[in-house]
């Protein structure tokens, strides 16, 4: 799975777009407060996440718990 924990800058209230290419259906686990769990399908999916407060937000693959990116939201 890639990326593996890259740091990405994001802005409060502006959508972050994930383009997911996967060989199975699943979901992301966005550790914002409260948490968000957008789902992807087998093949390509486009997911949007909005973080509404500043903070460091980890995004993991739901099932494996593997870290994908850390969003530095300002």
């Amino acid at each position: 799975m890639t990326p593996k924990g890259d740091r990405i800058d994001a802005k409060v209230g502006e959508p972050v777009t994930f383009i997911v290419q996967s060989d199975r259906a699943g979901g992301l686990h966005v550790h914002s407060s409260p948490e968000q769990t957008p789902e992807f399908v087998k093949g390509m999916s486009i997911l949007e996440v909005v973080i509404d407060r500043p903070g460091l937000v980890e995004v993991e693959e739901h099932e494996s718990g593997a870290l994908i990116v850390q969003l530095e939201v300002r």
Binding site: H31, P34, T37, G55, L56
Partner: peptide, 16 residues
């Protein structure tokens, strides 16, 4: 819908 099952705390503080 997937429900987050585990974990304590959500977003962390930004680096200073």
């Amino acid at each position: 819908m997937l429900v987050p099952m585990h974990g304590v705390g959500g977003a962390q503080d930004l680096p200073i």
